[in-house]
């Protein structure tokens, strides 16, 4: 199980970074989403893996699942979702204005910075 989780985190993060290095916003969006998933799994793993410990302190229960990583992951997911939505809107704006979804949008029309 540990190996599986570690591999999943590693593969997700690797694919995320690979996509992040692309020069088009669509690939970058996907890359950031994958990276976010990897990080969320990593935080969850910080609370240790296991399905036996109860989430509440019951009398007689041996262990207790750590509730904090779950709370942290919930916060991280919400924030990541909002940020992704913003990035999608921004990417669409860049595509509408610049005409392509390249990250290095073509230069603004010459004028202000040019020597007369």
């Amino acid at each position: 199980m540990e190996l599986l989780l570690a591999l999943a985190i590693g593969i997700l993060a690797g694919c995320g970074v690979w996509l992040l290095l692309a020069s088009r916003t669509f690939a970058i969006l996907l890359g950031l989403a994958l990276l976010g998933h990897a990080v969320n799994l990593l935080i969850l793993a910080g609370g240790r893996i296991g399905a036996k410990a109860p989430p509440l302190a019951l009398p007689g229960a041996a262990g207790l699942a750590d509730p904090l990583p779950q709370a942290l992951v919930l916060t991280a997911i919400v924030i990541g979702f909002g940020m992704s939505a913003f990035l999608v809107a921004l990417a669409l704006k860049g595509m509408g204005e610049g005409g392509s979804d390249a990250v290095d949008l073509p230069d603004a029309p010459p004028g202000r910075e040019e020597e007369p």
């Binding site: 990897a38 990593l42 793993a45 910080g46 609370g47 240790r48 904090l68 990583p69 940020m83 949008l105």
Partner: peptide, 23 residues
């Protein structure tokens, strides 16, 4: 665009560091 993408990647890194630290 570059600023947002860079900072989103930074946020992911921050979370990874926090996850490891809490773990």
């Amino acid at each position: 665009l570059a600023y947002v993408v860079l900072n989103l990647a930074g946020s992911a890194l921050f979370l990874a560091g926090l996850g490891l630290l809490y773990g």
